[in-house]
Design a protein around this nucleic acid. Structure first.
Lengths: 122, 122, 122, 122
DNA sequence: GTGGTCTAGACCACC
DNA sequence: GTGGTCTAGACCACA
């Protein structure tokens, strides 16, 4: 049985977006993040939703909050590297599961990826 | 600017599910599909939603409706092969865009996929 | 320098209250808890505040939430025993720090506790 | 029924702080206290709040005000000894009530305190 | 009915 | 200005 309506909570979407930006150095280690209110404006969501996303990121050690100042991206570059690796692994797992369900063999998967990487079609 | 709240319409989700089943021969070419009512029961959705999904599939030539009898999967095996190819390509494009955004080089992508295919960790 | 206004967040107070009730078998292992709305009525706070307290307890593994049904106290009796031990240790630490600040020697502390336990004055 | 939001009035917090300092000879018997204004600076609170705390202490006989000079700690060493005893007793009562609520037997309480006093883990 | 999420708006302490 | 907490009220999916 399938479960439709897979609407991922907005705070999780924001978390993942920021994670990606941390992992790809859009936000640099130790950098001061925009304030909750600014991010809420940017993302067009309620400040509480941003607050929750950032609290979760703090719990995961990727962000450190400093009251009366703001939030900093972690300086722990090892943690950032680990985050990056996790994102890559997750994307890869999802992809491979997808194409395995389409009955592609490992060899076919590799061939597909290779040809896609050579021919630079979007 | 990001757009959150990406609830994909249920009829699209059902379309994609059926496409996958056609492409992987869960449904065979020329096979008679379950009725709209039955599919609605199976997927736990409104019959109108199933109806819409099937109409779209018919527009794409993957399903053919025979009034008073029901709906058949297309016998056009070339179209099915093409569908399969499209699904693979789409998944591959999405994946590669994802990891390119994570700043992986083509070589790193290949390495990642290979290692994931060898060590068959879920 | 002292920091006055030590107002502990309500959701933490509720967490600690429920923890104590779990540790002392007011709530039994596996028992179904009152609903968020009921607890909000009982504690005279907003349902969101109760929700937060329970989410934290779930994160600590003391409560398990079952959607459409409610929340259960964990069946993990080892975890409950550990919780009980933690509460005892915390209370003891706080107490001993207090009386050490009052310049009591360990012998005096023991004497005080003993005499308090014999003479059953409240 | 529980009552949350237990913000203890600041003047009470200051009273208790000064009591502790009297009981532990941070302030000596007969010593001249800092002025209300100075204490307000030290504690970062409104002078009225300090005023109220000192008035209460005077009512309890622990402080004596000498107009145009200032406030003195009482010279009554018996009163100070009694104060010290009260603080110890109060802390002890609170602690023992806490652990009794956690269903510890008197023997277990003693064991817990002893072990905590030996292993001096903070 | 249940838990979960989101919004809008408020207040607080800190600086 | 900042982060943090709380309320009131709404909507959703699930059963």
């Amino acid at each position: 049985m399938e479960s439709f309506q897979n609407t991922q909570p907005i705070y999780l979407q924001i978390m993942n977006l920021i994670k990606k930006q941390i992992a790809t150095s859009v936000f640099n280690p130790g950098q001061l993040l925009e304030s909750v209110r600014e991010l809420a404006m940017i993302y067009q969501v309620n400040p509480n939703t941003v607050q929750r996303a950032l609290s979760e990121l703090e719990r995961e050690g990727l962000v450190r909050s400093e009251r009366t100042i703001g939030r900093y991206i972690t300086k722990d570059e090892a943690a950032i590297a680990q985050l990056h690796q996790n994102l890559v692994d997750e994307a890869t797992s999802t992809y491979i599961n997808n194409v395995l369900e389409l009955h592609l063999s490992p060899e076919e998967i590799l061939t597909t990826v290779k040809s896609r990487l050579k021919g630079d079609n979007t």
